[in-house]
Amino acid sequence: MDGHLNPLIQMKAVTKTYQTGGAAVQALSEINLQVQKNEYVAIMGPSGSGKSTLMNIIGCLDTPSTGHYFLGEKDVQSLSDNQLSEIRNQEIGFVFQSFNLLPRVSALKNVELPLTYLGIAQPERLRRAAEALDSVGLSDRKQHRPNALSGGQRQRIAIARALVTQPALILADEPTGNLDSKTGEEIMALIQKLHEQGNTVIIVTHEQYIAEQAARVIRLLDGQIESDVSTKARGNRPNH
């Protein structure tokens, strides 16, 4: 029904096979998927069902074994390693379950890092990184190192880092998985806010309440899409 619009994400018969030892593990099989701009999508499914694999492919950290993945206009298979780096840098903000921050540098430096690779000069970098930290409520922790901060605060740094290049797409793979439920709720409120500000958000989660925030829930089972349900009632999809 959104066929006349160019989808932000389009997957055609994407499969992913891992070769471990002698055995081949089919992590994803025949995935067909479209995600429009400004959508808020939750991906659910049991452990090992292929959620992370799907997110990694969407985030251009990994590439499909077969099939086609288009991000905007671009056919990801045809891109060079450098172009993939640029996409990860400028068009995607990735939030991981395990935070993935550099432990030995300050919160500010962590947030600054994507801008460094974007080639932005230091004063501008500092300004934008500080701004991103402000927006996640960490203005008073800029000079702290991640290991001096709580899990919730670390995930906020990671979110600030994901935001700082103003990407088209925010991906979060179980962002609350390492957090207690109260902190998890705070992080989810933050992600909800990002969506309300107009970001496209895809989130992997086990929590039903989180899924209910999203306008669309995709369930994976054994590397296949088991169901793809839009809950329009919540009204989070763009009006049309």
Binding site: G59, E86, R88, N89, Q90, F94
Partner: peptide, 16 residues
């Protein structure tokens, strides 16, 4: 290795 992964994930190119 982990640091390398993180840097690459947020946009570092190989030559960086």
């Amino acid at each position: 290795t982990r640091e390398i992964g993180i840097r690459r994930a947020i946009g570092a190119k190989k030559h960086h």
